[in-house]
Design a protein around this nucleic acid. Structure first.
Length: 552
DNA sequence: ACCATATACATTTTT
DNA sequence: TGTATATGGT
């Protein structure tokens, strides 16, 4: 084949090499942030191909289109044509393909609004009640809830709770309606393949085809995805589970960290490789992050080792309110960008780390409600920024038009004889708003901690490091503190060079003021790693940021 | 059918 | 605080 031994192992450390070459039997790859996880997976795929097996035997699944795209591109770059036979894609794309192969090529995939429309016609109640019922149907389809279970207390507040019997009836009506219209919802893309694989012949077919399975972000799989994998793998199959217990941040949606923690019990004889060499962050950032995450109990412990310099201390900045928070962030960005000449080219960049681009900066926060103040500050400054996960109005329109067009091509009662173009385009329906984030756009990225996973930036600002927000306890009690800590950890470990943690002493959110106390997680960062700065309550008559902002 | 006003309410969300 | 839904008047 086209790829050489040295190309596969070039630049890999020992652990990465082991993760690449341990191909037979179950394998758990514990991959901390910035440890070359994707590189390792890509090289593993190359190794499997180089060993001579058909590329069709390889299945690599991820959660996001973003991750799948990256993996696909890098694999193609390394392997060329040989890469085309490998399945690299999201769980949902895999399910989609299986349904096409086994059931039908012509069906319509319903988005959330369309689901609601279908359900609305089948039940009485407010649209809120419809949403809640939809949520329960989704939980059932993902095996998070039994159909016969009594209603969860968390659903009781809407006042439109269904008994188990009522729910069952609505569920069945809903499914019948989908079937009648030739529709599937997103959950069906996993649920239905799980059902199909129960069939002995179908199961055997796919197990023989997918001899080598790689699953990225294994810590975030939910029960439905777990079942799918189990059915594809069999008991002694070659399942390579890659993930990090410390970055499990989707349990609120049914992701079950237990799958990751118990992998070795679950798959007896499993080998384990830990990738702990970190190539992303400074030593200080890694130690700070470790100081926080080590407080968690539910984890597979690993000690990240820095390969970069120690770096600057983490800067804790206390500001009077959320407006100052934005201003301080802008000021720090301005300082690092230096001035610009008339053409917009940057001048004055004598940093050893190279000149900065706007895209080297990210502002990360816990709740979307915080975005407004920051967005306003950025908009007023003229510094280019993009909200990750929220497409601009132009992008939204684009996406809507594309989806509408694609839908117009699909005939519900189709014979299954769709033109090829339509078939592959239909996969574009799996695209999500997050896929419109353009990493090459030279703009500061603003996003929630959840959206930040998998990304990295030279300079990271975490806004709203206050008790009540980090961890986020203002809305609900009984918050999973460990998950909140992981979320903060994800935020911290996005930073390559400098990390800023901002705390507003007063913050107006949801019509009330918060933020007297700083986040308890800040105390978990060893004090020798941090430096504090306080911006006084009353700024002087001329705000310092005004001068700096004027440049842009 | 429409608009104005009241009132409830609020995390995170890969597909 | 703001939004989104509910209500009440015309």
């Amino acid at each position: 084949m086209s790829v050489s031994h040295s190309e596969i192992f070039d630049g890999l450390n020992e652990a990465q090499q082991k993760a690449v070459t341990t191909t037979e039997g179950p394998l758990l790859v514990v991959a901390g942030p910035g440890t070359g996880k994707t590189l390792t997976i890509v090289r593993r795929i190359a190794w499997l191909v180089q060993k001579g097996g058909p590329p069709e035997n390889i299945l690599a699944v991820t959660f996001t289109n973003r991750a799948a795209r990256e993996m696909k591109e890098r694999t193609a770059r390394l392997l060329g044509d040989a890469a085309s036979g490998i399945f690299i894609g999201t769980f949902h794309l895999l399910g989609l393909r299986m349904i096409r192969e086994q059931v039908s090529r012509a069906f319509i995939l319903l988005n959330r609004d369309e689901q609601a429309e279908v359900l609305k016609s089948l039940m009485k109640g407010t649209s809120k009640a419809v949403q809640q019922t939809l949520e329960r149907i989704s939980r059932i389809k993902n095996f998070l809830e039994e159909m016969t279970n009594p209603p969860q207390p968390s659903f009781a507040k809407g006042g439109n709770v269904k008994t188990a019997g009522e729910l069952k009836a609505v569920y069945e009506n809903y499914q019948a309606a989908l079937e009648q219209r030739g529709c599937l919802d997103f959950d069906d893309l996993i649920r239905l393949p799980v059902e199909l694989l129960q069939d002995e012949a179908v199961g055997r077919n796919y197990r023989e085809r997918f001899r080598y399975i790689i699953v990225d972000e294994y810590q975030d799989i939910n029960p439905a995805q777990y079942r799918l994998l189990r059915l594809l793998t069999g008991t002694s199959g070659n399942l390579c589970a890659v993930g990090d217990s410390d970055q499990a941040i989707y349990s609120f949606r049914g992701a079950d960290l237990g799958n990751f923690l118990n992998f070795e019990k679950d798959f007896p004889g499993a080998a384990r490789v830990t990738l702990s060499q970190n190539y992303r962050s400074t030593g200080v950032i890694l130690q700070a992050a470790d100081g926080v995450i080590r407080k968690n109990q539910k984890r597979i412990v690993k000690q990240l080792a820095a390969t970069r310099e120690e770096g600057k201390p983490v800067l804790l900045i206390s500001v009077p309110d959320e407006r100052t928070e934005g201003a301080v962030i802008l000021e720090e960005i301005g300082t690092r960008m230096g001035g610009m000449d008339h053409e917009g080219a940057r001048v004055n960049s004598e940093r050893t780390d190279g000149p900065c681009r706007f895209s080297d900066f990210a502002v990360i926060f816990r709740t979307n409600a915080q975005a407004r103040a920051l967005e306003e500050a950025f908009a007023a400054s003229g510094i280019p920024f993009q909200m990750v996960g929220k497409p601009s109005s132009v992008q939204r329109k684009d996406a809507e038009e594309t989806v509408a067009f694609l839908r117009s091509l699909l005939n519900p009662g189709g014979t299954g004889d769709q033109p090829r173009k339509t078939q592959s385009n239909a996969e574009a329906l799996l695209l999500t708003e997050a896929d419109f984030f353009d990493p090459r756009a030279d703009a500061v990225a603003l996003m929630t901690m959840h959206m930040a996973k998998g990304l990295e930036f030279r300079f990271v600002f975490i806004a709203g490091c206050e008790d009540g927000l980090v961890p986020c306890t203002i809305m609900k009690d009984g918050v999973d503190l460990e998950e909140e800590r992981r979320l903060f950890y994800v935020g911290l470990t996005r930073a390559k060079e400098e990390l800023f943690l901002l705390q507003a002493r007063n913050r107006f959110l949801y019509g009330q003021s918060l933020g007297q106390k700083q986040s308890p997680f800040l105390k978990e960062i060893p004090k020798e790693l941090k430096e504090s700065r306080t911006v006084a309550d009353k700024p002087k008559k001329e705000k310092p940021e005004d001068r700096q902002l004027g440049l842009f």
